[in-house]
């Protein structure tokens, strides 16, 4: 039940909990850091293009991490790149969310066994909120991952720390 249902009939007054309002504002305009590493980045670009528009969910690309809310790690994370990802993560202001897109950043992907330079999962350096599986995931799968993240934000609470 959204807060628009509790509108009074005689005017322009809407009553809602402050938490719901803040969460709604946050999930409707998640600005992402344009950060693509490998093949999944091409599917991310295709998601932001006109066929599977990302913009209708409020997601626009920002070049700098200091102006962004989410970072979509799309592609293989190598040991050389992992230290730079950690630095980018620390530059983002709170509240920040991370979507790990594709097999390679979930768990190392096809390179899990013999890759000497591949980090087996980006959650070894930064905490991840949503994992999107696939190699590469279809644009519809990435949009579903975004919707799941929006679900998670909708149920967040300022008082209770979420797990």
């Amino acid at each position: 039940m959204g807060f628009l249902d509790s509108e009074f009939t005689d005017g322009n007054i809407v009553v809602a909990k402050a938490e719901d309002l803040l969460n709604w504002a946050r999930l409707s305009s998640l600005w992402q850091v344009s950060f693509g590493l490998a093949c999944c980045a091409i599917e991310m670009m295709a998601t932001s293009a006109s066929h599977y528009d990302f913009d209708r969910f409020g997601v626009i690309p920002r070049p700098s991490p200091r102006q962004a809310d989410i970072i979509i790690i799309s592609g293989t994370v190598t040991l050389k790149m992992a230290t730079r990802i950690k630095r980018l993560y620390e530059q983002m202001p709170d509240p920040k969310y991370i979507i790990s897109m594709g097999s390679c950043s979930n768990c190392g992907g096809p390179y899990w066994e013999h890759g000497y330079h591949v980090l087996k999962g980006v959650d070894r350096v930064i905490p991840v909120d949503v994992y999107v599986p696939g190699c590469p995931p279809r644009p519809e799968a990435l949009l579903e991952g975004l919707l799941k993240l929006q679900e998670k934000i909708r149920n967040e609470s300022m008082i209770k720390k979420s797990a």
């Binding site: 490998a38 293989t76 190598t78 050389k80 790149m81 390179y111 890759g115 000497y116 330079h117 591949v118």
Partner: peptide, 11 residues
């Protein structure tokens, strides 16, 4: 370069 070195030749 080398930020995406995925060890293709070793695989």
């Amino acid at each position: 370069i080398g930020y995406l070195h995925r060890c293709f030749e070793k695989h």
